[in-house]
């Protein structure tokens, strides 16, 4: 059986990212940059949430800074933070050797599964706000959860056909293990001519200040109002059949909901209602996105003659929009 040979351990946090990017690039993924908005996880990136919808094939990998306001600890906790990195891989359709591909990525990071105890332990995933669920595992490395591995079954309320496979690496955890440190802020980000730069040098002040904002300063009445506004904006954009901008309004609303949660401004029953409101939006966006790709003839299917047709229909769409303007 052909397997990647065991690579040298990445020495720094950024090396870890480079190796993963390189590995997944070698395996055909589009290497993307983070989505430039506040999101709770790599799943919210359009390259996952929207691209998992519909029949078009897609492979992408990227780092996604993720914000979880309630997880902030003012920089006091060695491994709990309100802002961290995920490395996300999405491949549609999920390849038959998806698990092997993942294991090879561990080998490329210097983990030999012949020496280490690597396990796939059932952990099914469900996102109430995204109207999405999938089945899969958390991956254990010597008892530590280092990744999530999921076969998407439904996204935005739509059945996934084909199924996308998603891998999410917890970069800080992996790095802490690789560098054998107990405090995330002690991680070596890189060693350069100006000396060692730690994770704390990069993020500690941000962690402290953002925790204060999340827990103590975020303006609840303003956030509540903003939530309503983004909800409205999303619906307006959906009416204009602009799926991608509408989706950004969902991201805004979702992050605001998380902030309100951190401020403990939402009671239990209200909480369920907020989640339902976000889910309603993401479902509508998912359908709008599907419809928009369908209208374009699902360009990435690249069937015979599809490209030309798509180009034509895209031009048509643009012409209509210009005429409207």
């Amino acid at each position: 059986m052909k397997t990647t040979k065991i690579g040298p351990k990445p020495r720094s946090f950024q090396d870890l990212i480079f190796i993963l990017q390189h590995y997944w690039s070698e395996h055909g993924c589009v290497i993307l940059q983070p989505y430039d908005m506040e999101v709770g996880a790599g799943t919210f990136h359009t390259a996952t949430f929207l691209r998992a919808i519909g029949p078009e094939p897609w492979s992408a990998a990227y780092v996604q800074p993720s914000r979880r306001p309630t997880d902030g600890r003012y920089g006091q906790n060695p491994f709990r933070v309100q802002h961290y990195y995920q490395f996300q891989v999405l491949i549609k359709p999920s390849p038959p050797d998806f698990q092997e591909l993942y294991l090879d990525s561990l080998r490329s990071l210097g983990f030999d599964p012949r020496i280490n105890d690597v396990r796939f332990v059932e952990d099914n995933w469900e996102s109430p706000t995204l109207g999405a669920w999938g089945l899969g595992w958390e991956v254990w490395l010597n008892g530590m959860e280092i990744s999530q591995f999921t076969y998407f079954q439904q996204v935005g309320g739509l059945e996934c056909r084909p199924v996308s496979g998603e891998i999410t690496y917890g970069l800080e955890r992996l790095a802490m293990y690789l560098q054998d440190v107990d405090n995330m802020f002690d991680l070596v980000w890189t060693e350069g001519p100006q000396g060692r730069v730690s994770y704390g040098d990069v993020f500690l002040q941000n962690e402290i200040e953002q925790s204060k904002y999340n827990f103590d300063y975020a303006n609840v009445p303003v956030l509540l109002r903003n939530f309503d506004e983004h909800e409205q904006a999303c619906n307006d954009l959906l009416a204009a059949r602009l799926a991608l901008p509408a989706y950004e309004q969902v991201l805004k609303a979702s992050h605001i909901f998380n902030l309100l949660d951190a401020r403990r401004a939402i009671s239990v029953t209200e909480r369920a209602r907020f989640i339902l409101r976000v889910r309603t939006l993401s479902r509508a966006v998912a359908q709008a996105y599907y419809a928009s790709r369908e209208a374009l003839g699902f360009p990435m299917l690249r069937g015979a003659g599809a490209s030309a047709n798509v180009a034509a229909s895209m031009e048509g769409a643009l012409a209509v929009d210009q005429a409207r303007a």
């Binding site: 012949r114 530590m144 107990d182």
Partner: peptide
């Protein structure tokens, strides 16, 4: 702990598990 591997270096597995349980 029950591992799923007859590791040539079981201390790696042991140390990893000890790391996890501490926090």
């Amino acid at each position: 702990t029950i591992s799923n591997i007859d590791s040539p270096d079981p201390d790696v597995v042991r140390a990893g598990n000890e790391r996890v349980v501490r926090p």
